[in-house]
Structure formats: C-alpha cells, structure tokens
C-alpha cells in the first residue's frame, strides 16, 4: 500500500500512553522478507520497515531516518512500538503447535477506528445478515446468553460459552453446525477468536484480527489464521477470509461516529452485546483515549 494513499494529519498523532506504549502490527512479515522496504503509517507517523542483513526487523521514522523504533516479528506480522514498550506482546500458544497452518490473510485498509473493528469481530448477531449463508442464516438469529469476564491475572477480556448456528463455518465445513466460540481481547486493538473446527473435536481453530491504527479513525486490518486444515490451499484459505472481511468492510465504514463511543448511553446495547459492553468498560479502565470517544 502506498503511503501517498493516506493523507497525513497531525491530529492523527497519538499521545495516549495506553496505546502509544503498546505493540502494533505494521506489516505482514512476508512483505519484508523479500528484502524490500515497506512504507506504512502507524498512529499518524510514517515509518519504513525492512529486515537487516541479520534478518532482524529494522523500523525507522520516514521523516527522521536516523531514529530506529523497537520492532519484533511474531504471528506473521512485524510489530512496532512508538513509545516505551512496557510489556511483551500477548501470546497465542497455538501458533507454536507444529501441525497448525499459519496464514496472514491480507492487509485491508478500512475507514474506521480499531475499536469499532474489534467490536464487530466480537459480534455474533450480524452473522445471518452480513455473512449470509456462510456464518449464519435466517431465521436462526438468536444469540444465546454467554459469559464474559476479565482475567484477573492477564487482564484479557474473555467471552465464553458463545454458540451460533452456522451453515458453513470454515473452508473445511461440509454442512451446517452449531459452532462454539471463545473470544479473547488481549490488547485494545487486537482480538482473537477460538472456534470449533469440523476437523478435530478436541481442538479449536484460532482466528485473530490485528488492527494497525493508521489514525484514530482508520486502520489497516491484518487477519491472522492458525488453523487445523491440511486440505485447503493457502490461497483458498485467504480467499475465504477475505470474502468474510469484504462483507464486514462496508458495514464498518458506514458506522457513525467512526471512533467508538464509550458512554454506554451513546448507543443502545442489548444482552447479545455483553462482550462489547465489557470491552468498552475495559477500554475506559485502561485509559484508552485514541480511537474512542471517552465517556
């Protein structure tokens, strides 16, 4: 993606420590592995990523090439911190399992704030209407009550006991099924979903959405997959995921306001939004002010 496509605005710069001091995805790792430089924008700042001869990520500010910023490579992405990295990146244990397929499904620019995209990812009620015939179908529209808690040790938000009737839950599906979901939000702008796989009753597919905050109200989305799937090609797995995301994109880009309002009265939550309700309160508690309208 060309940097010129993003009109830079100084008000996009982030001064919010709750965001500035965290790791953010800025590129799929395959984009820098070829030895090429990758230009992008993070939190209103233009950056250039590449791998140095030792194979380590090297990320510099485009306007100040002498400055190197902290960078790591993990989960198929280059991650950067523009402030002081106070904690390590969250872990996805399944990514280390040898029989998993690891796929970075593409980079997609979306004209919306990261928290709106995360909330959409946490949402099951839209499946029959936005992902019709794939992740849901009318009239099976019920969202049964599920549980939500904030882990006292890791401070991740968890939604558990989620279930939804899906006609074609994954590339490996042949029939409809009641699909079980677990959602985990380990980072204000990143969200992970664990879902039933038709392949193995004991284990779950892992699908994550990493949001690169270009500005407070626009992102580059990096869908990340960690699947139990020996059959499908990487291209068809990507195509499936991109098809799903392409259905979400026009919804996300038509949400007003683009930043997520944290005042619970600003929009009208229902019981099915329990995960989002907790997520919004959690963002307030973390002191997040970027990409949101604080309560």
């Amino acid at each position: 993606m060309s940097v010129a496509a993003w009109s830079l605005n100084t008000s996009d710069r982030c001064t919010n420590p709750a965001i500035l001091n965290r790791w953010h995805p800025v590129a799929p790792s395959h984009a820098v592995e070829a030895g090429e430089s990758h230009f992008t924008v993070l939190l209103g700042v233009e950056i250039v990523c590449r791998l140095n001869p030792a194979g380590e990520p090297e990320v510099r500010l485009r306007r100040d090439p002498a400055t190197c910023v902290p960078a790591i490579v993990d989960y198929g992405c280059v991650w950067v911190c523009l402030g002081e990295p106070t904690e390590a990146l969250f872990t996805i244990e399944e990514a280390g399992e040898p029989d998993r397929r690891i796929v970075h499904a593409g980079t997609i620019g979306v004209n919306v704030s990261a928290p709106r995209a995360v909330e959409n990812f946490l949402d099951m009620a839209h499946f029959p209407y936005v992902h019709t015939g794939i992740l849901g179908v009318e009239p099976y529209t019920d969202v049964n009550d599920y549980q939500v808690h904030v882990d006292p040790v890791t401070n991740d938000v968890w939604a558990t006991d989620c279930e939804f009737w899906q006609p074609m839950a994954a590339t490996t599906s042949t029939t409809g099924q009641m699909t079980d979901y677990l959602y985990r939000v380990p980072h204000p702008f990143n969200v992970i979903l664990y879902k039933t796989t038709p392949v193995d009753a004991q284990r779950m597919d892992v699908i994550a959405l990493f949001c690169q905050p270009v500005g407070p109200d626009r992102i580059i989305a990096h869908p990340f997959l960690c699947l139990l799937d020996d059959e499908n090609t990487t291209a068809s797995i990507r195509a499936f995921q991109l098809r799903i995301f392409a259905q979400d994109k026009p919804i996300l880009e038509n949400q007003l306001p683009k930043c997520l309002p944290l005042d619970p009265r600003a929009e009208r939550p229902i019981r099915a939004d329990r995960a989002a309700i907790t997520y919004r309160r959690w963002l307030s508690d973390l002191g997040v002010t970027y990409g949101v309208i604080p309560a």
Binding site: H126, P128, Y129, T141, I251, Q255, L256, E267, R268
Partner: peptide, 27 residues
Amino acid sequence: ENRCLHRGVRLSIGVNDGAELVCRYHA
C-alpha cells in the same frame, strides 16, 4: 437521523421493505 440506534450504522444502507426500514447490520 441516519443512524441505527444499536451500533450507529447508517440506515441509508439498510433495506426499505415498504413497511419498515431494516438495518443492514443486525436487521
């Protein structure tokens, strides 16, 4: 007002079924 009460999605991308306006996001 061009916003669904629930999640702020523009109702103008919704469906006019002749009797009701249906939000595109969660119907």
